[in-house]
Design a protein around this nucleic acid. Structure first.
Lengths: 243, 243
DNA sequence: CAGTGAATTTAGATTCACCTAAAAATAAAA
DNA sequence: TTTTATTTTTAGGTGAATCTAAATTCACTG
């Protein structure tokens, strides 16, 4: 209100600067899930995200997605052009990063403090990520010692949305005699993580590629204790090693 | 199942035994809030809870409450007779105790681990109490060392719904020269708790009644360091001392 | 015990997130 | 470039939780 005054008193001009709105709008549980889904789908591949893809990950129908995209568009969370797909706006991306921050901090809490296994945390964190208090989020972050990566090796966004990005490459992209340390997984489904547990592969495991079978692209690898393992192509596409 | 076989096998009768359902039905966020509200309202005063009271604590309208009571009645969570009020069924009480268990464990976590003040935890815990995982709840309980009381002195129900009940009486019911230790508060509103903070009254504080002013029932008390305080009747009705 | 006032319930709408089925737009193939 | 297939959107409707306004029941008081 009073900010406009200055506009007309030319020597006492007060400049109203356009800034990101302080009114951090809150979003419904459902909206947050859509925002997260769109973020994740646009993370790999920078193009627009299409309706069916969102419907699939959220286990809903395309028509429902269209409804929500209209709504999120009106709230300036997504850039939405009919039939052309969506992308997050800057504001939308900020919101997404906060949700992911909470998700990954809670996952870290569950594993580090409550002794959950890394395959047990995803579902629970999917609920916890919607707890709204930012004081809580920041205190949790502090309590955990400001971790930079979650139990699956995924980076945890800071309060301002920044993430440590580490150089990593897929095990499937490596050559014979290459070696590295497991720093992340590309799939957090319980069945995959349980398989890794059984094989003795965890974050921090040292791996060396012994042989590559051209027929099916499976790999023969060595773990630190010289344990030899055969890894299918499918599996090797979901393990990140330090570059 | 198989244990029952022998009982009826000789006549070939298969007897369906009514037992508490193993299918622990899940309840919506909203339903849980109603269940908690009814529990709290029936805790003080064992009579039936009336519609308007529920509407008031949930900040909703009586008509909405009626709708929900019908629904909860159909689910056998409440005993509801039109125009006569409600009470929780046994099953409803079990559900209520699990919600309260989660609420109080989270409050304890926030204060003990995340350095929240006791006046900051209620609202956050109101969100966290709806996280469904019982594994989480039990691991949290363990992590906190199986606490029996929350930061306001309220008892935390065990996994089976049992609570330690300690003998306590209201400060307002005590006489001159009586003394005791603060073991709980009857009101967890931030403003009240902040007032206690300012006065230096916390759980564990030793209090002795020095004088009682008949005119307004206010009290003159001594804290452990011989600090004298004047406490209004209103305030003294919300502080529990060990009996 | 009838009559009034308060509490409660019903009736009818609204909003959110979802659905199915049909129409429209886009993309791929002939 | 038509035709066909796929994707996406519209249209219309459902259930959950809410609301307002009107009707009903209860409880008290004269």
């Amino acid at each position: 209100m009073s900010a406009f005054l200055g506009l007309y008193i030319h020597s006492f001009r007060i400049h109203t600067i356009a800034h990101s709105p302080i009114t951090t709008m809150s979003h419904s549980y459902t909206e947050e899930n859509y925002i997260k889904a769109i973020y994740k789908l646009s993370a790999n591949g920078t193009q627009e995200v299409n309706t069916n893809a969102i419907a699939e990950v959220l286990e809903t129908k395309a028509a429902s997605v269209t409804d929500m995209l209209r709504k999120l568009s009106a709230k300036d969370i997504v850039n939405y052009v009919k039939y052309k797909g969506v992308s997050l706006t800057e504001q939308g991306e900020r919101v997404a990063l906060q949700i992911i921050r909470k998700h990954r901090l809670w996952e870290t809490f569950l594993v580090e403090k409550l002794k959950f296994n890394w395959d047990e945390v995803h579902e629970v964190a999917d609920e916890m990520e919607h707890i709204s208090s930012t004081l809580l989020t920041n205190r949790l972050d502090e309590f955990l010692g400001f971790p930079k990566f979650d139990p699956h090796g995924d980076p945890i966004p800071s309060e301002t949305g920044e993430m440590k990005q580490i150089k990593q490459r897929l095990l499937s992209d490596m050559e014979v005699n290459d070696a590295g340390v497991v720093v992340g997984v590309n799939d957090s489904q319980p069945l995959f993580l349980q398989y890794l547990d059984k094989m003795g592969i965890a974050l921090g495991s040292k791996i060396k590629i012994i042989d590559k079978i051209p027929y099916d692209n499976s790999l023969e690898i060595n773990l630190e204790d010289n344990k030899k393992l055969l890894i299918s192509s499918e599996v090797s596409k979901n393990i990140f090693l330090s570059a």
